[in-house]
Structure formats: structure tokens, C-alpha cells
Measured scan of single mutants.
Amino acid sequence: ESFERTINIAKGNSSLGMTVSANKDGLGMIVRSIIHGGAISRDGRIAIGDCILSINEESTISVTNAQARAMLRRHSLIGPDIKITYVP
């Protein structure tokens, strides 16, 4: 059984350190890789294959690959914290 989780990740000045791609069925974006030493890796809660539904409350539903990457990059630049809703 999968259910949504919303977490805050304190990334400070470091990068999030993950790559994503659009989910084929349009439901959010899938975590493709996690870079060791990045904020996601240090936090430890998000794993490869998890589905991200929103970043800082901006929905990732029906985004393209390019939009998913641009959204991740944009939110990575805002502030020291990032809020991610995902399904493990």
C-alpha cells in the first residue's frame, strides 16, 4: 500500500542531488538517481523509484521530462529548504 508523504529537506547551500524523469502515466515524476553527498542522499528518506507528486506545493502531475528537470532546478535555487510530497 502506497501513500503520500510530505517532507521538508534542509539543503542549505548544497544541491538536492537527484535526477528525475516524467512518469509515463502522468502521475508526477520518478526519482532516477540520487547523488551521494547531496541533500536527498543525506536526508535518506527519498529513494530511487519513488514518485514525486509536488515540490514546494507545485504539482508535478502531467509534466514532461524537460519540465520535470526545469522544475527541480528552479526549486533547488529557492531558499535553504525544500518541501517534497512523494509516494515511496
Rank of each mutant, 00 (worst) to 15 (best):
V20L: 15
G44C: 03
K83Q: 09
E58D: 09
V31R: 01
I46H: 02
T60Y: 13
S2G: 11
E57H: 11
I40W: 02
H36I: 09
V63K: 13
T60H: 01
I40P: 01
G49F: 03
S15K: 14
A68M: 08
D25V: 08
R42M: 11
E57K: 10
L27Q: 15
E1R: 07
R69S: 13
R45T: 04
K11G: 10
G28Q: 01
P88F: 04
G44M: 02
V20R: 00
E57W: 06
I48W: 00
D43P: 01
I7T: 02
V63M: 15
G37V: 02
I52A: 00
Q67D: 10
Q67L: 05
I7W: 00
N13K: 10
M29E: 04
E1M: 13
R69Y: 09
P88V: 02
L27E: 14
L27W: 11
V31L: 02
G38Y: 05
L27I: 14
N56Y: 02
P80V: 10
E58H: 08
L27Y: 14
R69P: 07
V31A: 02
R73F: 11
L27H: 15
T64K: 05
S54D: 06
D43R: 01
G79I: 05
S76G: 10
L53V: 12
G17N: 01
C51D: 03
L72I: 11
G37Y: 05
L77I: 11
L77T: 13
A66S: 13
R45C: 02
I7P: 02
S62D: 15
Q67I: 05
S15G: 13
A10I: 12
I78L: 15
G37K: 06
I9H: 02
V63R: 08
R32D: 14
S14A: 13
T64G: 08
L53I: 11
S21A: 13
G49P: 02
M71N: 04
G79C: 08
S33E: 13
V87Y: 08
P88G: 07
P80Y: 07
H75K: 07
D50N: 02
N23K: 11
L16E: 01
V20G: 04
E1W: 07
A68Q: 05
M29L: 14
I35A: 15
V31Q: 03
L53Y: 07
S15Y: 12
L27M: 15
I84E: 02
I55Q: 00
A68I: 09
V31F: 03
R32E: 15
I46A: 01
A70C: 09
T19L: 09
D25E: 13
A68G: 07
G44H: 04
I46K: 04
N56G: 11
A68R: 02
I78R: 14
I82D: 04
K24L: 09
H75E: 08
A47T: 12
V20M: 14
S15A: 14
G12Q: 10
D43E: 02
S14C: 13
V20P: 00
R74I: 06
T64M: 02
E57F: 05
R32Q: 14
L72T: 04
N13H: 13
L53K: 13
I30A: 05
A70F: 06
G38H: 07
R45Y: 02
I7K: 02
S2K: 11
V87L: 12
D25H: 13
M71C: 10
R73T: 14
G79W: 05
N65D: 15
A22H: 08
L77A: 15
I30V: 13
Q67H: 09
I34Q: 03
E57L: 05
E57N: 15
G79A: 09
I35P: 05
I30F: 06
S62Y: 11
I40V: 13
V63Q: 09
N56V: 00
P80D: 13
D25A: 12
T6D: 04
G37R: 05
M71F: 10
I55T: 03
V20C: 14
R69L: 09
I52V: 06
A39F: 02
A10S: 13
E4N: 13
D43A: 00
T19R: 11
H36C: 10
T60N: 04
R42A: 11
V87Q: 08
I55M: 08
D43I: 01
I48Y: 02
E1V: 09
P80T: 14
Y86A: 02
I78T: 15
P80R: 13
S62K: 14
I46P: 00
A22L: 07
L77S: 12
D43K: 00
I40T: 05
G26K: 06
E58C: 08
I9C: 03
A39C: 10
S14V: 12
V87G: 01
T6M: 05
V20W: 08
I9T: 04
S41F: 12
R42N: 10
R45A: 01
G17M: 02
I46Y: 04
I30R: 09
T19D: 12
G38Q: 10
E4C: 11
N23W: 02
S2N: 15
I40E: 00
E58W: 05
A22Q: 13
I61S: 12
F3P: 09
S76V: 06
K83Y: 05
P80N: 13
K11P: 06
D81R: 07
S59V: 05
E58K: 06
R42D: 09
S59C: 07
A22I: 09
G38R: 05
H75W: 10
G12D: 07
V20S: 01
N65M: 07
Q67C: 07
I40K: 03
P88S: 11
V31M: 02
I82R: 01
V63L: 12
R5N: 08
Q67M: 07
F3A: 09
G44Q: 05
G49W: 02
C51F: 05
T85L: 05
S41N: 11
I35M: 13
S2Y: 15
L53H: 10
I30N: 06
G37M: 00
D25Y: 11
L16P: 02
V87T: 10
L53F: 05
H36V: 13
A70I: 10
S62T: 11
D25F: 10
E4V: 09
M18C: 06
G38F: 04
P88R: 10
G28C: 03
A39Y: 04
E58A: 05
G17E: 01
R45I: 00
A22P: 14
V31S: 00
H75R: 06
I52W: 00
H36T: 15
N13M: 09
G44R: 06
S14D: 13
S33V: 01
G79P: 05
V63E: 05
V20I: 11
I35E: 14
K24D: 12
S14L: 14
I9K: 01
L53E: 03
V87W: 07
S14T: 13
I82E: 02
S76C: 09
A22S: 11
Y86D: 03
G17V: 00
A47H: 15
R69F: 09
G26I: 03
I61D: 11
F3Q: 10
I84N: 00
D43G: 02
I40Q: 01
S21P: 00
Y86I: 02
C51T: 14
K11A: 10
N13W: 07
I52C: 03
I48T: 11
P80H: 12
M18E: 01
M29T: 06
R74C: 06
H75Q: 11
K24F: 07
R45S: 04
A22C: 11
Y86T: 02
L77G: 14
P80F: 06
V31C: 04
I35T: 13
L77Y: 10
Y86W: 04
G38M: 05
N65Q: 11
E57Q: 11
T85S: 11
I84Y: 01
K83D: 05
S62I: 06
P88E: 07
R42T: 10
L77W: 08
R73W: 09
I82Q: 02
D50M: 00
R32Y: 03
T19K: 11
A66P: 08
D43Y: 04
I34T: 02
A66V: 09
S59Y: 04
C51P: 02
K83T: 11
T6W: 02
N8L: 13
G17L: 00
V87S: 08
G44T: 04
A47Q: 14
I46R: 03
A66F: 09
R45V: 02
H36M: 09
S76N: 10
V63T: 10
H75L: 12
A47L: 07
T60P: 04
L16R: 01
K83A: 08
S54Y: 09
A22E: 09
I34S: 01
T19A: 08
A47S: 14
D50E: 01
K24E: 12
E1N: 15
I61T: 12
I46D: 01
R73Q: 13
K83R: 12
C51S: 11
D50S: 01
S15I: 11
A47P: 00
G37F: 05
P88Y: 06
R42L: 11
R69E: 14
G37S: 07
G26D: 05
M18H: 01
T64H: 02
Y86N: 03
I55R: 01
D25T: 11
D25G: 11
L16H: 02
R45M: 00
E57D: 15
T6E: 06
M29D: 00
R42W: 02
S41Q: 14
M29W: 06
R73D: 15
A10P: 13
C51A: 11
R32N: 12
G44S: 06
S33D: 14
N56H: 01
E1I: 14
N8H: 12
S21C: 10
L16I: 11
A68W: 08
G12W: 06
G28F: 03
V31E: 01
M71E: 05
I7L: 05
I61P: 04
